[in-house]
Nucleic acid binder design. Sequence first.
DNA 1: CGGCATCCTTTTTGATACTG
DNA 2: CAGTATCAAAAAGGATGCCG
Lengths: 134, 134
Amino acid sequence: MAEDGTLTRVTHTDVREPTCELREILDRVGDKWSMLVLHLLAAGPRRYSELHRAIDGISPRMLTLTLRSLERDGLVSRSVTPTSPPRVDYTLTAVGETLQPPVHALIEWAQVHRDYVSKSREHYDIAERGGQAL
Amino acid sequence: MAEDGTLTRVTHTDVREPTCELREILDRVGDKWSMLVLHLLAAGPRRYSELHRAIDGISPRMLTLTLRSLERDGLVSRSVTPTSPPRVDYTLTAVGETLQPPVHALIEWAQVHRDYVSKSREHYDIAERGGQAL
DNA sequence: CGGCATCCTTTTTGATACTG
DNA sequence: CAGTATCAAAAAGGATGCCG
């Protein structure tokens, strides 16, 4: 995510293939939790604690960072209700909703091909080496 | 990519939401280069050096790791032609091809919404703090 | 050419404790 | 409840050099 600054990596003007743009989105959606959060929010607004419980392995820190990042990119909106115990709801923005189809496509792919991938891994690990998991 | 081994993260059997599966695919496709390689291979087989040049910022190490990982998962196949200078071609497998639609969907989303995301970030950084990029 | 091994730096993520 | 701050571990990535 270090756009420029120290290294400017010349950019070769060789952008026949959208490598740069691709990297940007992959960085956006390819972190450990973003897609998961996006997916959960697809079902409607959720509170911070709901997300926290739903995701199970996430630390408050990462949940907050993920949500802030999504908010910064305009994909999620945060609304605070200053009641006695504060209440914060996160909702997909209109643009955030448009990310649903791609996200969903990926999730479906995963469900359909999970077994295949597992088998492939086993086969590869047994065959090529002695179990030298890459 | 460290599947299991030391940590086994208990799995809580709380899989109402497909968090676990999702994490698996995201890890598969969400690294820095996999999708990029997958995308390039969509246009047909490529040699190692072609991929290396096409991707531009990748180190030989990462290209190899990425390709091995994709091969291990059965998404890419590697064929060696033992000519004078050895020649190695990488091709999408049938299942690798099925990953194209989701990948493509994501790429398109990115192209369409890049400006929106940029604007959102600027706005967020200027407004919320004093430029405290998350 | 293709690619592994080694060493090192940068980024990411996690655990925890504490606050409005 | 909804975070933030701090500390530390772990992963990912990069630079090199050597080899078949």
